[in-house]
Amino acid sequence: MRKHDSELDESLFVHAPLEENKAEEIADHPTGFWIESLQRLKKNRGAVIGFIVILIISLLAIFGPIMNKYDYNTQDLTRSNLPPLVEGLERVGFDGTDSHGKNIYEDRSISNEPAWIGTDEFGRDLWTRVWRGTQISMLIALVAAFLDLLIGVIYGSVSAFYGGKIDNVMQRIIEILVGIPNLILIILFILIFEPGIITIILAMVITGWVNMARIVRGQILQLKSQEFILASRVLGASNRQLIWKHLIPNTMGPIIVTLMFTIPTAIFFEAFLSFIGIGIQPPLASLGTLIEDGYQDMRFFSYKLIFPAVIISAIMISFNVLGDGLRDALDPKMRK
């Protein structure tokens, strides 16, 4: 809506200086694309919070398991199914009582270090297990995302840059791959090979790179007909230089955004596979296996389900919000 004319008067206007040399003065320091994007990102409160949450969870995933004396895999049946107990937080539910309100710690006269968020049926400390599980889930997601990035960027840039017949064939392959539901391929892949971290990563990469390749190709197709590429080519740059020095750096924005959405997808698939029993195998734990274990016991030991469920949800929400924020910040079309 435009302001009404009556609200505007002479006093609001300042005459432009008449000196000729001042006419093209730049008001502010020139800022590069990345600095400007960062400034835009900082203004997005959700994205900043998402980033901080990811940072905190990553630090806890690394240092959480060594914050108490328990190991993720040492069984101790005298400590089985202990409810959460944190000294000082008894009021908000961490009071060591089970679903019937009975204090298990007093009942079994356990006096050594309490389990902060409880223990599982074998007496393994859940705090340690949850952070070990987060480590493994994050590791799988990061490696899968990195491989997607590598294959996707190479495939997409080659396809777009060389064009013609090569592009045609490469695009037809992608079109067929996109048509296959990826979960089905992932499950079939895992059924053939032994379930494990590497199998899960490879299974996710088989179809995961396609999205990245499509985005990189689209970007490079737009870029490659622009003048600066022609200029560089005229100056004698080789194809390799053109791709790595000009095209890929200019595609970085969409690549980063896609990566931000690849990571939560990978975390979801890993948890999904572990939940239906063909993912990470014991004694290793991931967020998916912990949720599965917690789900089995949720009627009487709901804390076993709730803690890993909260962590995985927090990770997924943070990555999605950060990804949204980055997309808005890096998209030059949104620039005001």
Binding site: A271, F272, I291, L305, A309, I312, S313, I317, F319, N320
Partner: peptide, 12 residues
């Protein structure tokens, strides 16, 4: 809705 895995939501 986009973020919370459906099976986590279902279990909860």
């Amino acid at each position: 809705g986009m973020s919370i895995p459906s099976f986590v939501f279902a279990a909860l």
